[in-house]
Design a protein around this nucleic acid. Structure first.
Length: 802
DNA sequence: GAGTTTGAAACT
DNA sequence: CAGTTTCAAACTC
């Protein structure tokens, strides 16, 4: 972290990373300032087409692009278009768009205020020529990937949210919905749908009632989900054409590439496991080529064939529901995160820069949410994915989820939508390892949240012009007192919606949960003298930096979970069988609570105490530090394995089948992978006195349900002790090298418990890869159970490094 | 809702 | 690194 600094932002030091194309690009973008306000809503900084195009067209960028998106497979991109009916009708845009979007995910959304937003899920944006000449009114570029040097890859990180206002025409003129004005939004699911709607149905009908609410609720069917991760090159051209065609309209085009694919643990994948398959991992992620495999595997199912997107969508939906458990899961999580955090996330741009002294860009551990944008466009989140996080590169840890904001624009379909039958596959599986992310809610809660929150988001801009759009959706609506909100969290509702009650810390210390979580304080917070707001960005960044200087891991996830996601899904190593596999990085220091109350961070996180803990009288239900695991689940799991190991012999098999499921349920639920946010997400009400049974997270349960639905066998996992799914590289250097007590998590604990390698992120088992591998191995034994295993599943998991 | 308890964070 | 103080969440009533 000691790198030559040149003041970049607010005097904050910047790292070499600045030299990277990305930052150059960003620099060029700056000063980005709010361009205009519509209906009182602030329009955020924008980039001109020219700048964007030049950026993406630049050799450097291209090189990066290659890195990031080397594999451009046409996969099932669903496109969601929302546009004002007028615009659509006038420009006859719909058909064109649909054409152009065949290969790319593109969503045109009528922005709250009146902009038509096109969300192109690809980093490279080549605006139409006309647009290029246009002054950049509003563009957000969200960068999430590593720098040029960012070898390892995953840079998927680039998430560009580009907003163009191709039409200088007064945006204000466009009647916008937000204020109760009639909404004219058209949601197009596919090109076919576009045409149908724009032409056949007539825009008006479609238009009305197509608000996000509609979209979310009714429109869900119409929505297509894309995998953001990669877009074929061809898509680019198509997208360009699309943009060119749409140039007449005021457009908000945001493309985002999911950055998050941090191969590492931290990633969303981790928890999502298979999330890799979805968009999260960019093909290029790994140099080792493993990514490519995964990619190919992952996306294969998603590939759409030409015109039948609808069909593809259906397929996807099915997959999601049934087969691609992981995918759906990841998406779910991601979406959840987005929901909750989308607006609050801070992008500590300076921090990121600073921290990245290394030419090699490491994905910040914390950047789970690479995609986020805060309302404040100036913030770029650079998610770096890399194999090793050196302490120096830690920078990103913990941080800030601004990209989530962008997501909202993208209208990620939440898990619920999955349940509804229409799911967004595209969601970057970015799960933040952090508590904030951890805030992931149970699906149920998510559902609620999503339904309401998405809408709220849209509205949020209106209300919150000055600050980050602020706030988690639910937060917007929830103006209840902090305590109540807290309670909600306890109930597993949203931790994403953190709120604090700071009085003296000004929300600039780790005492503040919001600050610690890397999010801005929002209205629901009851803090006093709060500086943790976008308006004090520099202060926040500076403070953050200072804190990190003191403790590089200060913003890192406190809980390290098993690094093997998939395994987590039910094939964990023996040591990872239980939540115990996760450990608090620094351990607790409880003396009076016996680690049985939320005072105990370990308990709060739903993890067992470890040797890192200095607690006294530890009775942590998740596992005592003395090694006396209390977790009955372990035993249960063992029993299950025993049963499963028994040779299948007719009746026994049948008899045990249910039992297996039962075991599976337990396993799944208990596994870190499904716990993903368990501790945070769906903490059983701790206050109730019950130990947080992360295992019961709704996510896990639903996932299980999906598995069952697919009849996907859950492989037993006898994993090679030495097996390291993602290879050592997956472990962030920061964790690996960290000699601090906090990183005491060990692969093997003194007490014989095997603890997965340090893995940042809650439950995000980083290595979906590893998980997959494991699963495959175990599959054979379970083959009998999975006779009906979907091809997709097989494909996805059939590839393993070994 | 006020007050107490608790342990992390911050400070010395 | 240990001890102390500060702080805000968790908890209790």
């Amino acid at each position: 972290m000691d790198t030559p600094e040149r003041s970049k932002v607010g005097g904050t030091p910047v790292s070499k990373f600045e030299d990277s194309p990305i930052f150059n690009f960003i620099d060029n973008l700056s000063p980005i300032q709010p361009v205009k306000s519509v209906h009182g809503a602030q329009v955020f900084p924008s980039l001109s087409y020219a700048s964007i195009s030049s950026f993406f067209s630049s050799p450097q960028l291209n090189s990066q692009k290659e890195l990031r998106w080397p594999v451009r497979q046409p996969f099932s991109y669903s496109s969601k278009f929302e546009m004002s009916s007028e615009s659509a009708a006038e420009t006859n845009l719909c058909p064109e768009i649909s054409d152009s979007t065949k290969l790319s995910s593109c969503s045109v959304v009528a922005q709250e205020k009146s902009n038509i937003a096109c969300v192109l899920n690809e980093a490279a944006v080549d605006p139409p020529d006309e647009c290029s000449t246009e002054p950049s009114n509003s563009t957000q570029v969200h960068y999430g990937s590593g720098g040029p040097n960012h070898n390892t890859a995953p840079s998927y990180g680039i998430k560009a949210d580009l907003r163009f206002n191709t039409d200088p025409a007064p945006i204000e003129v466009v009647p916008f919905v937000s204020d109760g004005v009639e909404r004219r939004e058209v949601l197009f699911a596919t090109e076919v749908e576009l045409q149908e709607k724009s032409q056949a149905e007539g825009s008006k009908e479609i238009v009305e009632g197509c608000g996000w609410e509609d979209l979310l609720s009714d429109g869900v069917d119409e929505m297509l989900i894309f995998d953001n991760s990669t877009v074929s090159e061809t898509c680019k051209s198509q997208e360009e054409s699309l943009l060119a065609k749409t140039n007449k309209q005021t457009c908000l085009i945001s493309r985002h590439v999911d950055v998050l694919n941090v191969p590492r643990n931290i990633q969303p994948d981790g928890s999502c496991g298979p999330c890799l398959q979805t968009a999260t991992e960019g093909p290029a992620l790994d140099n080792n080529g493993e990514a490519g495999k995964q990619h190919g595997v992952d996306h294969t199912p998603q590939i759409l064939s030409g015109s039948s997107q609808k069909q593809a969508m259906n397929d996807q939906t099915q997959k999601i529901e049934g087969n691609n458990i992981c995918i759906s899961l990841g998406c779910e999580v991601d979406s959840q995160l987005h929901h909750g955090m989308r607006r609050r996330c801070l992008v500590f741009e300076s921090f990121a820069r600073n921290s990245n002294n290394n030419s090699t860009f490491q994905p910040s551990v914390s950047l789970p949410c690479t995609e986020k944008f805060t309302s404040d466009d100036r913030h770029f989140t650079s998610s770096r994915t890399g194999s090793g996080l050196s302490p120096q590169t830690l920078p990103g840890i913990g941080l800030h989820l601004n990209t989530l904001a962008t997501i909202s624009k993208n209208r990620i379909v939440t898990p619920e939508t999955l349940s509804s039958g229409r799911h967004l596959l595209s969601m970057p599986c970015t799960i933040s390892p952090f508590p904030p992310l951890t805030a992931l809610k149970s699906f149920n809660s998510e559902k609620d949240q999503f339904n309401g929150s998405e809408v709220r988001d849209l509205e949020g801009l209106d209300n919150d012009s000055s600050e980050v759009p602020s706030v988690g959706l639910s937060e917007d609506l929830n103006h209840s007192s902090p305590k109540k909100k807290k309670r909600k969290i306890d109930n597993g509702e949203t931790e994403a919606c953190k709120r604090c009650n700071c009085k003296k810390s000004k929300c600039l210390k780790l005492y503040c949960e919001c600050f610690a979580a890397g999010v801005y304080c929002v209205e629901p917070c009851s803090c006093q003298g709060c500086f943790n707001k976008p308006v004090h960005e520099e202060t926040v960044l500076a403070t953050r930096k200072q804190i990190e200087t003191r403790n590089p891991l200060a913003f890192a996830p406190k809980v390290i979970r098993a690094s093997e996601p998939v395994q987590d899904v039910g094939i964990q190593e023996e040591t990872n069988k239980t939540p115990a596999s996760a450990r608090h990085k620094r351990g607790c220091n409880c003396k009076k609570s016996s680690c049985l109350k939320k005072y105990c961070e370990c308990y709060q996180a739903g993890v067992g105490c470890s040797t890192s803990c200095r607690c006294e009288g530890c009775k942590n239900a998740f596992g005592r530090k003395d090694g006396e695991e209390i977790d009955h689940l372990v035993e249960e799991m063992d029993d299950c394995e025993k049963q499963m190991d028994k040779p299948d012999d007719g009746q026994q098999n049948a008899a045990t089948h249910d039992n297996k499921h039962h075991c599976t349920d337990n396993i799944l639920l208990d596994t870190p992978c499904f716990q993903i946010c368990s501790p945070y997400v769906n903490m059983p009400s701790l206050s109730s006195g019950k130990p947080p049974q992360s295992s019961t997270s709704s996510i896990g349960y639903q996932t299980l349900q999906m598995l069952r639905k697919c009849d996907i066998p859950l492989p037993r996992r006898k994993i090679d002790k030495h097996f390291k799914p993602a290879s050592d590289d997956d472990t962030p250097e920061i964790l690996r090298n960290d000699s601090s007590p906090g990183t005491s998590v060990k692969t093997s604990s003194p007490n014989g418990k095997r603890v997965s390698p340090p893995h940042i992120g809650l439950g995000m088992s980083p290595n979906c890869k590893g998980g997959r591998k494991l699963i495959l191995k175990s599959i054979p034994s379970l083959a009998s159970l999975s006779s009906s295993v979907p091809d997709d599943y097989t494909v996805n998991y059939s590839v393993h490094p070994h």
